[in-house]
Design a protein around this nucleic acid. Structure first.
Lengths: 362, 362
DNA sequence: CGTTTTTTCTGTAACGATTCAGAAGTATAG
DNA sequence: CTATACTTCTGAATCGTTACAGAAAAAACG
């Protein structure tokens, strides 16, 4: 019968700890935080004071979220590995656009990590919706996100019924780039790409054959290749004669390495179509180092029009797209979805060919 | 009695909808998802099948989080406005480091938006902890985050007791930069900074006076200014004779504008200390456009060593810090905190002066 | 065949808030 | 002074899970 030792102090301070300390109902404490008009100013003061004294950190957001059925954040699924997101200038502008919209709506932006094999992070993300951007077409994470049945927007992904999609007219852009080079008289083309096939099945240093084209697992890659192909064939150039070099990563070094290989081919290509600006910038530098003059001996076209495109000499001819607007549109569409409205289910953003100094007549 | 009209179809499908449909206990359905070993493979199959059929999106993560007391994400408080985060190269490397660590721990990274006046987003963020990075010293959002009483790590913030802090030895770096210029014989200095005083109280185009120095509300700004000041005074140069120009934003354009003003002063400064590389890069370009040779007529030192620092001509002399490591350390410290361990409460990262071509003897 | 062990499944109490109908108590109106 | 309307506060239901103790059934044991 001896008195037990002190009851373990209630490690966790909740709304009811505070209520008990004051001798009021829990709903009163809740109201003190969320509906000041529901109780007298005097009592509210006291509640807040006692709460502070007890070290109550305020209403638990998770509990609130459960009750209110909203998380106040949007999940962004992007890139194989999260850190990559912070390296690609084009992707960053897109993220910036997304962030801007969400910020205005006071929504958090949750970057969801996840290697393809493990979808738990997607399944357990505390979000009200998803934006899926630039994921591999068959990435299980995308499936997992859609299975959550939350409002979702696809950006640069293969469209699906019932899911609003925003895509850029990459195919038209690629066509414009190709037609530009054709009109300058070029007949010998080569293509530098990345992410053509799965990350872990990277090609050797030989330009890969066109057959692999159908394996392209990134939607925008497919679109761009398709856009290159059509005008070439129309001009009587066999697609199978166009070497495609697939880089390991989207960066300048890989672009520079690629161009070396391609320039060694016979016939030597005089026009290089690059799937991204970073690859193109690398290609320019690589070509120059190999002693070629751009654009006199070699024309190079990029894709994206990132800020660096104008800083190089010669300034890069490229296909411009409005990255920030992409992000804004995606964010906007998702916010409408969250508000119960139905945004246009399919938006296509225009692109524009920007002719600068890296292309010239042959 | 006439039969009522169809009961409204259960709009929301939960674990108990599935359990009811199967005639099993809810705990069984839960186990089917989380503990396959707790039920027969055959029943599990059936549960999953029925769930799929009903369109059950899987266990609600918010409810799970409430029960398990973990959110699976970390909040990052950074920069006045979220989009800014995506523009500063140095900050991006830090974010990349943070993201890397968190990804390995399978934690999401929640970018928390918030204008100073409204702290609700911080209060309601569904996270297990915070990383506070480069916020204004007195930003209410920081207070709000600390009030949550979650594991928190401060990065480039004024240290506080009981909160692990990671800071860079900015002061030493600034000292090294200054001493370097002094040893080259420079006597007339000027400083280009940003974020010296509150965003909305921006200065005119006149270099602001040194007195304002004490108003600096960003911890690292203070440290760097302090680091510039000490060796200067030691060399007999009055701090009040050193003009400080405060830019509106940390970018090249503002740096270029700043240098124009400073070069018009008498005596004309021959050594410019820039608080960031972006400002320094702008200053170089601005000086060159104004007809000055760098470094022959004007020495310029940056701070951060961002990749672009080597791409400009002349290559920028600057103070290097390991941005990625900063992020990694912060992430690591937070993960230890979340695991109940106590990381070193105070880490100071070293810096290094990198002498390139933008500085020369007078 | 009775006992023990193992497997499979169930029921219920948390988790920590918010919401809403309504009970007291007070003020206003007629 | 009674009826009506506000204020202010309370209690219980609810959000959708998971954890845990234990019931029921099946398997293993001697």
């Amino acid at each position: 019968m001896a008195n037990e030792h002190e009851p373990a102090k209630p490690h966790r301070i909740t709304i009811s700890t505070v209520a008990a300390a004051l001798g009021v109902a829990v709903s009163t404490v809740s109201n003190a935080y969320n509906r000041p008009d529901q109780l007298s100013a005097e009592l509210r003061e006291r509640v807040l004071a006692v709460a502070a004294e007890l070290g109550y950190p305020g209403p638990n957001p998770v509990a609130r979220s459960l009750r209110q059925q909203r998380a106040g954040a949007v999940g962004v699924l992007f890139a194989e590995r999260l850190p990559y997101a912070f390296r690609d200038p084009a992707a960053l502008m897109v993220l910036e656009g997304i962030a801007s919209t969400l910020e205005q709506a006071k929504l958090g932006l949750l970057l969801v990590p996840g290697r393809d094999d493990d979808t738990t992070t997607v399944q357990q993300a505390l979000v009200d919706g998803f934006i899926v951007y630039s994921m591999m077409d068959n990435d299980p994470l995308v499936e997992a996100a859609l299975k959550r049945r939350l409002p979702t927007v696809l950006l640069d992904q293969p469209p699906r019924p019932d899911v609003p999609s925003i895509i850029v007219d990459d195919e038209a852009g690629a066509r414009m780039a190709t037609e530009h080079l054709l009109s300058l008289g070029h007949r010998h083309f080569a293509i530098i790409t990345d992410r053509l096939i799965e990350t872990h099945v990277r090609p050797s240093h030989a330009p890969i054959n066109v057959q692999t084209h159908s394996e392209a697992t990134f939607f925008v890659t497919q679109l761009r290749l398709q856009g290159y192909r059509q005008p070439l064939e129309q001009a009587g150039i066999a697609w199978s004669d166009v070497p495609i070099y697939d880089c390991n990563d989207n960066n300048e070094a890989d672009g520079a390495a690629a161009i070396q290989i391609l320039l060694a081919r016979t016939p030597r290509p005089t026009a290089i179509l690059c799937l991204t600006d970073r690859l193109a910038l690398g290609a320019i530098v690589g070509a120059q180092q190999a002693g070629y003059n751009v654009p006199e001996q070699l024309s190079i076209v990029g894709f994206d029009d990132i800020p660096q495109a104008t800083r190089i000499t010669p300034a890069l001819t490229t296909v411009r797209q409005d990255h920030r607007q992409k992000g804004l549109s995606a964010g906007q569409a998702l916010i409408e979805l969250l508000a119960g409205q139905s945004p246009t289910s399919y938006q296509r953003l225009a692109v524009e060919l920007v002719v600068r100094d890296s292309t010239a007549a042959i």
